[in-house]
Each structure stands twice: as C-alpha cells, then as structure tokens.
Amino acid sequence: MNALPGYNFAYLDEQTKRMIRRALLKAVAIPGYQVPFGSREMPLPYGWGTGGIQVTASILGQEDVLKVIDQGSDDTTNAVNIRRFFNRTAGMATTDRTEEASIIQTRHRIPEKPLNENQILVFQVPLPEPMTRLEPREAVTRKLHALADYGLMHVKLYEDIARYGHIATTYDYPVLVNGRYLMAPSPIPKFDNPKLHMSPALQLFGAGREKRVYAIPPWTRVESLDFEDHPFSIQRWQQPCALCDAEDSFLDEVVLDGGGRMFVCSDSDYCQTRQAAGHTGSENTPTEVSA
C-alpha cells in the first residue's frame, strides 16, 4: 500500500515529529513524569487515541511493523481504524502477531505474550493525571508531583479498604515508577499492571487531548500502590478460556444468544496462537455474534 499523496510519511510533518521525540526523550529520562508537548490536532477525534497516534507517528520508520489493539483485540473497529490510518499515511507493514511487531499501539490492554527489548508499546491515554479525580486542579497536582507528596492517593486506598474490605480500583490502577513518580498506567485492567514492571520493552504513553507524554524505560521498577497488609493483587478467573483453555490470560465475558455466558481471552492474538497450537476450550464451536 502507498502512503497518502499530499501528506508526509505517517501524517505528521518532520518538525512536529522531532518536537514529539524531544518530549519523549525527556519522558524516558524522567520515568513516569508527565511531559507537556505541543499536541497537534489530528484527523481522529480527541479521546480516540490521538496521543498514541502522535507518539507512534513520531517514532515510526519504513521498516517498522505495526500492531494496533483495542481491548486486546486487533479486530475492534477503533483498532482497525487506527491501523488503516497508518496504512494510508505511512504504508508500512502491519501485523496481528505480537511477536512480529516492532511497535504495538494499544488501548486498555498489554498483550499476554511477553514483549522483548526490540519492541515499543505505545499506550493511548485519556487522563494522564492519576490524582485528577481527587484533585482536578493541574496547578496543584503538578506541585504534589514535584514534592512527591502522594499521601492523598493512599487516603483513597485506605478508604476503599475501610469501606469494602479491599482496594476497589480495578483499572487505571495507580503505580509508582522507579520509586519516584506516581503514574496512571492508562485504563488497563490491574491484571496487566505486573507486566509494566521490569519490562524489556520501552513503554510510551501519549495523551493527545491533555497534551502530555510519559514513559517507562525498559527494565524499570513499577510498583502498584498498596498496603503491606493489603498487598496488590490481580483478577483471576475460576475457569480457563472457553476457546483456548488458557488459565493465565484476561478473560472477557460474552453473553451468548441463548442467554448463557462464555469467558474468552481478550487478547485475540494470544487466543488464536494457542488454538493454532492445538489448545481447545470447552466451547470451541462456531458461534455467531452479530456486531
């Protein structure tokens, strides 16, 4: 496929890409710190991945292989649309297979297959400020970050335990990066938080509407906030994936036509790879679901 005539490779002009790469370098140098950048108006709506798209566009080369997922799947409309956008404007290779990709742009998930040091994971971020629900004023949260004054966040967790007996945050679960900056991991389920820790892959975060980028460099400590006597824990399902029998993946609940339920991997590539390798689940029969 050819790049779109009249537009630069990967849509953004080279000056803009340089500006974003400078911001990314700063972000890598200060893990977890939100770097303001001159976010551009993209031809996709704000809140639909403009931050991730700008980050991807600014680091993308001709030889890269791009994978785009939304909710863990390559086939959801938003993932398809973003992949199509890069196909049209950059014309580079795309893939569904995690291990083949050099850049993976994601919304709300981290792939189940372990990443390696030659890969970059780009997160789409709606709200980069982890304290925004407790303190909406940016002038204040910036100061709290500067002073590493994160008591407020623990008050929230304390209150969860006092009220519910456990921490009631299930996604966008706040983390402390490299022992210094409190960071929103974007709305990934807390199931994925452990994958942020000591990842061999570079992890970049782009928030277009809020005009911030931040990063977790490879092999960086990432701790999910918790209490010593209420340690961080992740979701787990009683049963394996109904299609590939995986016991270690995040499962989506699907309501079937007959009213029954089925639990299947949210990571479509992981599920298909396992099925191709001969794993079968309890419900591995064709089912029609109209979109």
Partner: peptide
Amino acid sequence: VEASGFVQHLKLPHYVDFQSELE
C-alpha cells in the same frame, strides 16, 4: 473539538474495564 471527542469516546469499547468493574 476536545470536548466532543472525549464525550463521544464513550462510544468506544470499554469492555475490559467494564469486565473488571463487573467482577
């Protein structure tokens, strides 16, 4: 443009987060 995008992004799938909340 920002407001319209962010309000309407609620149309995008959120089923991973929703699944977590459901659980």
